[in-house]
Amino acid sequence: MTLLERDPKSPLTWSGNLPVTSRYTFGLAGEKFFRAIKDEGKIIGSYCKKCDHTYVPASQFCEKCLAEVSDWVDVGTIGELHTFTVLYEGYDGARLVQPEIVAFISLGDGGLIHRLGEINLDEIYFGMPLEAVFLPEGQRQGSILDIRYFKPAG
C-alpha cells in the first residue's frame, strides 16, 4: 500500500485549486542573515546580552525578553549534529530514488535544518561536527539553498 492508494468505491470528487502566490520579504534580521550567506559565505546569529542567548538564524528580537537584539555574531560554518532523519518518500507518497538525509545542525543556541551530503549513513553520530558547503560566490542569491548541504567537518 502506498500513500497514493486508489479505492474504486471512493466517493466522486471535484478538482479545484486555490491560486495563491506569495512574495515574501526577508525581514529586518533576514536581510542581514541572508546577505551574510550571499556576500560573505558566513552564517550569523544575533546575541541577546540580557538572556545570554544566540539566535540562529538571526532574529531581530529576543523571544525571552522582547528586547531588540543588535549584537550580530559570526557563528562559524561548522555546527554539531543534533538529530537526523533519512527520507524515503516524497510529497506525493512515491518512493525517492535516492533517500535523502536531513539533520538539525546546532549553531549558537539555535541551528539550521538542512540536508547532509558527502556522508555515509553508518558514519553519522549525534554531536558530529558538520560544515556548511556553499555554492560558489557568483551563484548565491540570498537563499537557504545557497548552502548546498552540510558535510562532515575536517
Binding site: 500513500l3 532523519t85 533519512v86 518518500e89 535544518i113 538542512h114 537557504i144 539553498l145
Partner: peptide, 28 residues
Amino acid sequence: HAQAAFLTIFDHTTERPLGPNLLWIFAL
C-alpha cells in the same frame, strides 16, 4: 496527499525552500 499541506506552516525563507514536511520533524 495532506502531507504537502504542511509545507505551508514552515518559515518561508529559512525552512520552506528545503521542502520540509511533518514526517521530517517527527522523525528528527
